[in-house]
Design a protein around this nucleic acid. Structure first.
Lengths: 205, 205
DNA sequence: CTCTAAACCGACCCATCGGTCTGGTTTCTT
DNA sequence: AAGAAACCAGACCGATGGGTCGGTTTAGAG
């Protein structure tokens, strides 16, 4: 039983540090030794726990990234009254630079998505399925908002969800280097304009 | 003189095929031999014309990609009356799948941007400067639109430009695999909503 | 204290790929 | 014709990095 604990602990350390460095330098630009040296572990230790670099990364995706996306972008939408402000807040939150240099700028789906596209079908599909979860949830929240009278009836919820996701992914691309806080502010402002266009406008209260 | 022509012709073939394959498989995932075999050329030929793979790609960026962006996204905006519809059309155009399988889906700035980020500062900066040209032009066109009374006075043109670019880049991320024509349609529709929000609404005509 | 198996080490293997080098062939110049 | 310069072929080099393998340590069970 203790051995299983040790195993878990090591795997956990590997995954955590792995995500950190992969996010920093990219998957293909990070060698196993880069990570292993950092943790003072050896190749042998690594291959004792994971069958390949790919297997390792999939593990990271499914354990850490999924959780991150869910916590930041999915869950917060499910306990709100008016969806539009809630979505806005979740996006703003996800674009927030992490405390210290840890996991800067929310999460990194877009970078990985692009990196694995046309290069590793397996990993790509895992990442895409994460996006899909987000999208489905967005659509459902938007539809609810329509029923509740917060969103105009003419709005195409699927289209809106896609559009929101696209703008968010693109924003992360633009923010990838320059720590330009301005960008985030601009984005939120413009998104508000868009949300204003699809919100239900109550008869003058 | 003839020699110079030969040189140009070979370099041109190399760049064309290079962009095609790099776009297809990514820069780091494409070896020189991949390209050379396709053209029945040798390493010797290659290194006679370019000093390195990096030099080669920069050549491609500055000759081919710059032109593509300019022709698709910059130039069309400079001879229009109302900027908003013109922008919309240029984006729609840029998302169009190329004829045949040649240069599918407009261009590929976002993919390269992500690939070189944190990996090759030199190439990154070239790519970013292309984005910058686009952005500056967008801003200037939007400002003109404001003066001409097509765009509401309260609009932050810089913010709007950033937002448009972000949504476009993100859209290309989403479209990268699935040949989902639906996506493009959805995007254009939602963008229209946004444009509607920042357009100047003439007093009931 | 032993014995076993999990955990771990690190030298090694090997495929890939950017880049070099040598030498050959075509093309232009004189 | 002949020499130079451009052009190209392809064997080779060196570094990198994923993956392997035999051996060593550690820790819990009996």
């Amino acid at each position: 039983m203790q051995m299983t604990l040790k195993r878990r602990e090591t795997m956990h350390r590997l995954c955590g540090k792995g995500l950190e460095i992969f996010n920093e330098k990219g998957y293909y630009n990070t060698s196993l030794d880069d990570i292993l040296n950092e943790l003072s572990l050896s190749k042998g230790a690594f291959y004792h726990h994971f069958k390949s670099k790919e297997d390792y990364f999939i593990n990271i995706v499914q354990n850490l990234i999924v959780q991150k996306v869910y916590a930041l972008l999915v869950e917060p939408l499910n306990h709100c009254e008016d969806p539009l402000p809630a979505i806005l807040e979740s996006l703003e939150n996800a674009l927030e630079p992490g405390k210290k240099n840890e996991m800067a700028y929310g999460f990194m789906l877009n970078d990985f998505l692009t990196e694995f596209n046309k290069r590793n079908e397996e990993i790509s599909s895992h990442l895409k399925s994460i996006l899909s979860v987000w999208e489905v949830n967005l659509v459902s929240v938007l539809k609810r908002g329509k029923v509740d009278g917060h969103i105009a009836r003419h709005v195409d919820c699927e289209g809106a969800a896609t559009y929101i996701i696209a703008s968010f992914l693109g924003m992360r691309s633009l923010m990838m280097d320059s720590t330009n806080g301005q960008l985030k502010y601009q984005y939120i402002q413009q998104l508000k304009q868009y949300f204003n266009a699809i919100a239900a406008h109550k008869a003058a209260a």
